[in-house]
Amino acid sequence: MSEKKTKRRDFLFTATTAVGAVGAAAVVWPMIDQMNPDASVKALASTEVDVSSLTPGNTLTVLWRGKPVFIRRRTQEEIDEARKVKMEDLIHPEKDEDRAKNPEWLVMLGVCTHLGCVPLNDKGDYNGWFCPCHGSHYDTSGRIRKGPAPWNMEVPKYEFVDANTIKIG
């Protein structure tokens, strides 16, 4: 195309296409975003759990945002086992001290980081959890040790409201 002729027409053509594309995107976005979590789903942000009945060595499973949360009251043995693991042995290195601020209580999403199944308690090669779907083994700190899962089970935001109540979220 010669230099002289690429003026008014070309400008109009480019400008029309550009405005049209912006307009199309403005219409498409609401269609896409309507599938994201809605206001009522987002509103269910936190949940409070009474843990007074939980004895050491037992796990309570509660539902938070449609996902199970494991609350485990760990025995001293389990704590020791989790704390003596060397960082270089871990697939996703995280200190147990960082995962369980109060060592007796381990709170984490009971969701396998591979494809989202719920791992089974007191199972697997590391005395923690075992995911039956694709064979991921987690230790007593909920850290991935063997299998296809890439990360440790996620620790959500939580706090002790009082001695017997945990607020998740």
């Binding site: 896409i32 599938m35 994201n36 979590p37 809605d38 789903v41 945002r65 449609g66 996902k67």
Partner: peptide, 9 residues
């Protein structure tokens, strides 16, 4: 999350 329309199925 977008596919689910929430934080789980």
């Amino acid at each position: 999350t977008w596919l689910w329309g929430g934080y789980s199925v």
